[in-house]
Amino acid sequence: MNNLKIKALEFDISWKDKEANFHQIEKLLENENADLFLLPEMFSTGFCMDAEEIADQSDQSLNWLKNIANKKEAAFSGSASVQENGKFYNRMYFVKPNGEVDFYDKRHLFSYSGEDKIYSKGDSRKIINFKGFRILLQVCYDLRFPVFSRNKNDFDLILYVSNWPESRISAWETLLKARAIENQSFVFGLNRIGIDGNNLKYPESSSYCFDAEGKIISNVLNQIISVDLDLNDLQNFRQKFPFLKDGDDFELKF
Score class of each variant (00 low, 15 high):
Glu100Leu: 08
Leu109Met: 06
Pro146Ser: 09
Lys117Leu: 12
Gly189Tyr: 02
Leu234Ser: 10
Gln184Cys: 06
Leu229Pro: 04
Glu73Gln: 15
Lys121Glu: 12
Arg150Ile: 00
Lys131Met: 06
Leu190Asp: 02
Tyr89Ile: 04
Leu136Pro: 04
Lys245Trp: 09
Leu143Phe: 01
Asp102Lys: 13
Tyr119Ala: 01
Ser113Ile: 15
Pro203Trp: 10
Phe188Thr: 11
Asp142Phe: 01
Ile127Glu: 00
Glu213His: 08
Tyr112Ala: 13
Phe186His: 02
Val161Tyr: 01
Glu73Asn: 15
Phe148Leu: 13
Arg192Gly: 05
Ala51Lys: 02
Ile169Pro: 06
Leu200Glu: 13
Lys5Gly: 06
Gly122Ile: 02
Cys140Phe: 07
Asn199Thr: 11
Lys27Trp: 08
Leu137Gly: 02
Phe43Asp: 07
Leu28Asp: 14
Asp102Trp: 09
Leu38Arg: 02
Val95Leu: 04
Val227Ser: 04
Asp17Gly: 08
Leu62Asp: 07
Asp196Met: 03
Gly194Ser: 08
Leu38Tyr: 00
Asn31Pro: 02
Ile118Thr: 14
Leu4Tyr: 05
Gln138Gly: 03
Leu229Gln: 04
Gly99Ala: 07
Phe237Leu: 15
Asn98Tyr: 05
Lys71Phe: 11
Asn232Leu: 12
Lys16Cys: 09
Ile217His: 03
Ser79Cys: 07
Leu252His: 02
Ser207Phe: 03
Lys131Arg: 13
Asn191Met: 07
Ser206Ala: 11
Glu26Met: 02
Ser124Asp: 14
Ile169Ala: 03
Lys253Glu: 13
Val187Ile: 11
Ser226Trp: 05
Leu190Val: 05
Arg134Gly: 00
Phe250Asn: 03
Tyr93Glu: 01
Phe250Glu: 02
Gly78Lys: 03
Lys7Gln: 13
Ser149Cys: 04
Phe11Cys: 12
Phe241Thr: 14
Gly214Phe: 09
Gly46Thr: 10
Leu176Phe: 06
Ser44Cys: 11
Phe103His: 10
Phe11Val: 12
Ser207Arg: 00
Glu30Cys: 08
Lys215Leu: 08
Val139Cys: 04
Lys121Phe: 09
Ile118Lys: 10
Leu29Cys: 05
Gln60Ser: 12
Tyr208Val: 00
Phe130Glu: 00
Ile25Ser: 06
Phe210Ile: 01
Asn232Asp: 14
Arg192Trp: 05
Leu176Met: 11
Ile13Asn: 00
Gln235Glu: 14
Asn67Gln: 14
Trp164Pro: 05
Glu173Tyr: 10
Thr45Ala: 03
Ile68Phe: 04
Phe103Lys: 04
Glu41Met: 10
Leu29Thr: 06
Leu28Gly: 05
Pro203Met: 10
Gln223Asn: 15
Leu231His: 00
Val95Gln: 01
Tyr89His: 10
Met42Trp: 03
His23Met: 14
Lys5Ile: 12
Leu159Asn: 03
Ala34Asp: 05
Phe130His: 03
Asp56Met: 09
Leu137Arg: 01
Ser113Ala: 14
Glu182Leu: 08
Ser167Lys: 15
Gly194Phe: 07
Asn199Pro: 05
Glu53Gly: 06
Lys245Ile: 13
Phe103Arg: 00
Glu53Thr: 15
Ile54Glu: 06
Gln235Cys: 04
Glu173Gly: 07
Lys18Ile: 10
Asp35Leu: 05
Pro40Val: 00
Gly122Tyr: 05
Tyr112Phe: 13
Ser81Asp: 12
Phe186Tyr: 15
Pro40Asn: 01
Val101Lys: 03
Ser111Cys: 06
Phe145Leu: 11
Ile158Asn: 01
Leu244Val: 07
Ser162Thr: 15
Gly214Asn: 09
Ile68Ala: 06
